[in-house]
């Protein structure tokens, strides 16, 4: 992993440098015009946020039931990245909504669900940070319950009027938009993977430093 990290990082940087060009060359959407281009960053961030939430939930379950400390380090890394990418979603979303719907926020199913999922993972980080000794388990339970909660939030908020485009919009994109979209999605997923690995290594090293400290004290 160590050996492939640097080349992959380079690839990710090239992808991100090329993305604005592709987005700029993509055709304009008929009714929204320029503002629709936020889509190329908004949707991939949302995809990565949900992916990261599931990585964190599954890693937490493994940590709880198998008592594997390594899984916990993956969970921390994924938890932090969920909040980071969630922030991108929650900033780009209202910017787009203001232009497309005329309001900053709507209590629509997908919006509410993203906000709640984001809040669950903020709570996850708060517990880890301020919970004191043994808070990893608490946080792991929070992540696990948060993951189980997603379908319930989805059904309960779906009963309200929904104005957010359905996810099926992705498969019915105009040909000129499809290329840049998947290009951005790939870039985001790659960036996510790299950040996840880097953050996990940091956590691993932090743990080793802690062990050395303890060994010195004895």
């Amino acid at each position: 992993m160590k050996r492939t990290f640097a080349p992959l990082m380079l690839v990710a940087m090239v992808l991100f440098a090329a993305a604005p060009l592709m987005v700029a060359n993509a055709p304009y959407e008929a009714s929204m015009g320029l503002v629709q281009k936020i889509f190329y960053y908004h949707v991939p961030s949302a995809m990565v946020m949900f992916l990261s939430a599931f990585v964190c939930g599954i890693a937490s379950a493994v940590f709880l039931f198998k008592r594997s400390a390594a899984a916990d380090r993956w969970a921390v890394a994924a938890g932090e990245l969920t909040v980071a990418f969630g922030l991108i979603v929650l900033v780009t979303g209202p910017l787009w909504a203001r232009k497309a719907w005329g309001v900053w926020w709507q209590w629509d199913a997908r919006l509410t669900m993203s906000l709640l999922l984001w809040m669950i993972f903020v709570a996850y980080l708060i517990v880890r940070r301020y919970g004191g000794a043994g808070s990893e388990k608490l946080a792991a339970a929070m992540a696990l319950f948060g993951m189980a909660n997603v379908p319930f939030v989805y059904v309960s908020v779906n009963y309200w009027r929904t104005i957010h485009p359905k996810t099926s919009v992705v498969s019915t994109l105009a040909p000129g938009m499809r290329g840049p979209f998947w290009f951005c999605a790939l870039s985001f997923v790659l960036l996510y993977g790299l950040l996840l690995v880097a953050r996990r290594r940091l956590e691993e090293q932090r743990y080793q430093v802690e062990q050395l400290h303890l060994a010195l004290d004895d």
């Binding site: 517990v127 919970g131 608490l138 909660n149």
Partner: peptide, 22 residues
């Protein structure tokens, strides 16, 4: 779970409300 945690009074609503929104 929070019985043993520090600042448990604050953390209970912080954890509980997002999960019980449905």
């Amino acid at each position: 779970m929070l019985v043993r945690a520090r600042s448990r009074d604050v953390l209970l609503p912080v954890l509980l409300y997002p999960i019980t929104i449905p």
